[in-house]
């Protein structure tokens, strides 16, 4: 279970990215964070695994305050939390297999990993993950040679290697076209429902939110402005959605993008 208490982040330049944010994520949830770019979604996700150090507040992860951890302890807790990124963040000049194996670094003794040695067990895990995401035949290609959708699958496979209890997904489909967006989110849904991983995901498109989330929080200017259950979000109208997003809100419908105004009754 993850419990965020009074989380605040102020950057060095004075930007207030998060203001006193508190919420709880129960095990097995698919919690979606919505909000405009700049609303603090990325900062929030990165504070949880401490890629960014929060200014104030507590991040209680299974009884441990992540905000206070340092060094070895931080790394041990970090490896329980997988992360997927908008721009995939693969090492583009390394092979797919190396990228996936890198997900195992938190479990590999430093000396072995520096020489590129991973255990047979880890290699088996990597192949299993690649197979599960359907990119087994791409294993020896360089990451940069893959299409966007394939790269994000490598990103998911890398996160899987950590055998995480929770997955943080920072706009995982924002760089992909709608068909691929569904494909990636279906993988996350499967991990959530079949493997019981908690998913904390930021998304932009209302229909994706409606289809995949079990609970939703909305951020605006670093503050939580919306809290909704699965039922709430299904019933959410475009007007409420626009409240959080402003006029730029966009719906993805049956693989087509369009403005909400043109497409008010779009199928979810």
């Amino acid at each position: 279970m993850l419990e965020i208490r009074n989380l605040t982040k102020i950057y060095d330049d004075g930007t207030v990215a998060l203001k006193n944010v508190s919420f709880t994520v129960n095990d097995g949830e698919f919690l979606v964070v919505i909000g405009l770019s700049g609303s603090g979604k990325s900062t929030l996700l990165r504070c949880i695994n401490r890629l960014i150090d929060p200014t104030e507040g507590e991040i209680i992860w299974n009884g441990v305050d992540m905000a206070q951890l340092q060094g070895e302890e931080l790394r041990k807790n970090r490896r329980q939390i997988g992360m997927i990124f908008q721009h995939f963040n693969l090492v583009r000049r390394s092979t797919v297999l190396t990228n996936v194996l890198a997900g195992r670094l938190g479990y590999t003794p430093q000396r072995n990993s520096l020489l590129g040695r991973f255990s047979e067990n880890d290699k088996q895990k990597a192949w299993t993950a690649l197979r599960r995401l359907g990119i087994e035949d791409q294993a020896h290609k360089l990451a940069r040679e893959l299409s966007g959708g394939q790269q994000q699958r490598v990103g998911v496979a890398r996160a899987l290697m950590q055998e995480p209890l929770m997955i943080l997904a920072d706009e995982p489909v924002a760089s992909l076209d709608p068909v691929l967006a569904h494909s990636i989110l279906q993988y996350l849904e499967a991990l959530n429902q079949e493997d019981g991983m908690t998913v904390l995901c930021s998304l932009h498109y209302l229909d994706l939110v409606q289809q995949y989330s079990t609970r939703v929080i909305g951020l605006r200017d670093g503050e939580i402005v919306y809290h909704g259950s699965r039922a709430d979000i299904r019933a959410m109208t475009d007007e409420e959605f626009k409240d959080i997003y402003g006029e730029e809100a966009v719906r993805v419908s049956a693989g087509l993008e369009g403005n909400l105004n043109d497409n008010a009754e779009g199928a979810a």
């Binding site: 990165r46 695994n49 890629l51 790394r75 041990k76 807790n77 970090r78 490896r79 939390i81 997988g82 992360m83 990124f85 963040n89 693969l90 090492v91 890198a102 997900g103 195992r104 670094l105 938190g106 479990y107 430093q110 990993s113 990103g155 890398r158 290697m161 950590q162 943080l168």
Partner: peptide, 9 residues
């Protein structure tokens, strides 16, 4: 960022 997130040193 991604490698750090895996718990790497």
């Amino acid at each position: 960022e991604a490698i750090q997130a895996t718990g790497a040193t």
